[in-house]
Design a binder for these strands. Structure first.
Lengths: 105, 105
DNA sequence: CCGTATCCGGTAGGATACTG
DNA sequence: CAGTATCCTACCGGATACGG
């Protein structure tokens, strides 16, 4: 199951959805670099795992809402905390890398 | 930087090291399925990022200890929490998948 | 707008063999 | 024991085109 978290896009989608309900296109724009294909695959897997719920409104043009289930929210919280951590420590890690690259090769 | 967390082996190594100092072989045995190659690559990257420290004892046979740095510990705690979460919810997720697979295809 | 289907190149990573 | 080096393949995932 950690395998699923070992997926870049899954983490990013969870982070975005933990901020609130999103439509397909909103997710696509909120996650730079994701392809349409990967977004559908990722959301589908999350639905299958019972972490995300999909609501389809048969309007024209069609609209689809994605939101976290209770289980998804509990996971989303932890993943968001991880995202915050990585933001807070980015500089420290960059510095560590430069130190390493200098001393080594 | 989340990219690094979006790596299966990195997460597992962090979880194991957050339990304490480990030798190379101990890590290899503690993480089923990891190859020697991936273990060296993963530990090297973690060292480079300043999350893990390596201590080499020039004995025969040689011995190498890996341990988390303070920064690594703060991350390791969060990642371990994630591992606990996935253990606690494995059944619920498996059930959700079966429900999905039945209703869909 | 919200997907699905097909093609296809790059690379992650396993297997293996070899050093110190 | 603790790595490094080389080969080789499967699969991930981007690009594109199309359907509802």
């Amino acid at each position: 199951m950690l395998d699923r978290l070992g997926d870049r896009w899954t983490v990013l989608v969870l982070v975005e959805l933990s901020k609130g309900t999103r439509r397909f296109r909103e997710l696509e724009r909120a996650i730079p670099g994701i392809s349409q294909r990967m977004l559908t695959l990722t959301t589908k897997r999350l639905c299958r795992d019972g972490l995300v719920e999909r609501t389809v409104y048969p309007t024209t043009p069609p609209q689809t809402d994605y939101r976290l289930t209770p289980m998804g929210k509990s996971l989303g919280g932890m993943v968001s905390a991880l995202a915050d951590w990585s933001r807070d420590h980015r500089d420290a890690i960059t510095a560590a890398r430069e130190r390493w690259d200098d001393s080594d090769l």
